[in-house]
Design a binder for these strands. Structure first.
Lengths: 242, 242
DNA sequence: CGCCCACTTGATTAATATCAAATACTGTGG
DNA sequence: CCACAGTATTTGATATTAATCAAGTGGGCG
């Protein structure tokens, strides 16, 4: 199944016609090298991009060189939904692993959404979920201490991949450096290292070789105070109305 | 001007017909007392609400009693845009001051958006800006130290009010307690107090009597590393296409 | 082989939390 | 108007968390 369809199918099921409309709206696809920024702050927002494969992130730099990663993008995620409504980008996009990124014009997406209300709803759903995840990150970074926040993050990625049918057991590719992990959790790389070690010592995870393995899902969920409700992974759209 | 129209007018200008369609979509309006939660996590999302007057916030509680405020809502802000697409709420809404809150059914909003593409675009814009603000909060809480984050927050509120034409000089109503300020910045109430005091000593702000006064806007902007670009306050919609 | 980068470890410092107590402010009933 | 209770703010002392500095280990790869 095409990654975009797979992602939106979390929200609703699509007819073959809708599926092909979705897929046809995405034109070019190009390979982004690992660690390459494929959109920078202040870039004029033109095309709408979709991550087809690999792991990406959104991040913001500060003047003093600090950086905050504000979300991770998984296969099927749209990178710039609706961005034509905004004058400028407010954050950058980076490929963590090598990524396959498709592009689409905003016009053709608008056209598809006009024709298929369910697709419009699905993209709107994706935007809302993204926002919900951002709010949860504020909590993660603002309130949870390092070990707890790390556990929460590992759970988030696991549940999102799981919903895509991409979790291989309790083991998933997670090629982030400890520096990047720190940038996502709002802590230093050194502290990220100690944090990972603590989770390892508690036999909750294994992390290395660019993979994360959950050794004790219940334990990790409890440690992170994780409740998957905010990911809104249940299908919602009334398909009879299509 | 009606608060909702005033807010969306940041994005685009509306014809009288569009304005009245917008206003008519909002039915009941009720007064919420200060500190009252008017939506709780796990509430089933039914109506779409709009803040007409007062100051509100979105917040999330943790099991241990900690709380994170994840955004402030100003007059004209929609509280639950598109929320009918989600099964459950993922955060609560609280009135900080006494608030006037209007309600609307999702159906009637859908109808208005179907009829007036510009209104659809305006609500989409609002959702995107909200998400951008959430991302900036992740940075604020994750990377900036307390004084800097506080300065940044005070700038954010100022620029947002300014865009609504509601900043009275450099002085605006800000009836949050220092506990709430701490909950927004991810710091303790005691530290919030010392933080406020530092900003006062530097002659950047005055804060008291439920108002915030900016004594030195340039200084505050610099202290907070504030760049208003992420608020996306420039009108964008091509009105000739209406 | 040797270099580069990520990871690891230890020691010290800085930021912030927590605990505790005192002071001011707000509204209310008498 | 005053006394009072309750809440918010302020201050000080101490504890914890995480940052920084510095040095060492280890693997992957030209």
């Amino acid at each position: 199944m095409h990654p975009i369809v797979r992602k939106l199918s979390i929200f609703a099921s699509f007819t073959p016609e809708e599926e092909s409309a979705l897929i046809l709206a995405c034109v070019r696809s190009r390979i982004i090298r690992s660690r390459e920024d494929f959109a920078r702050e202040d870039d004029p927002p033109r095309t709408v991009r979709f991550l087809l494969s690999g792991l990406g992130c959104r991040h913001k730099m500060l003047e003093d060189g600090r950086r905050q990663i504000v979300s991770f993008m998984l296969p099927g995620d749209a990178c710039d939904l609706g961005v034509s409504l905004l004058e400028t980008r407010d954050h950058s996009l980076m490929a963590i692993s090598e990524c396959d990124v498709a592009s689409s014009s905003d016009a053709s997406l608008q056209h598809v959404m006009g024709q298929y209300p369910k697709i419009r709803a699905a993209f709107q759903w994706q935007t809302l979920v993204e926002e919900s995840i951002a709010r949860e990150w504020i909590v993660n970074v603002g309130q949870r201490e390092a070990v707890v926040g790390a556990a929460h993050l590992f759970c988030e990625i696991y549940f999102r991949l799981q919903a895509l049918g991409m979790a291989e057991g309790l083991n998933y590719p997670f090629p982030v450096t400890q520096q990047e992990l720190g940038d996502a959790l709002g802590i230093s790389a050194v502290h990220a290292n100690r944090t990972v070690q603590e989770l390892r010592q508690r036999n909750l995870i294994a992390f290395g070789d660019k993979r994360l393995t959950i050794l004790d899902l219940d334990g990790l969920v409890e440690m992170g105070g994780f409740d998957p409700a905010y990911l809104h992974l249940e299908a919602r759209y009334d398909t009879s109305a299509a």
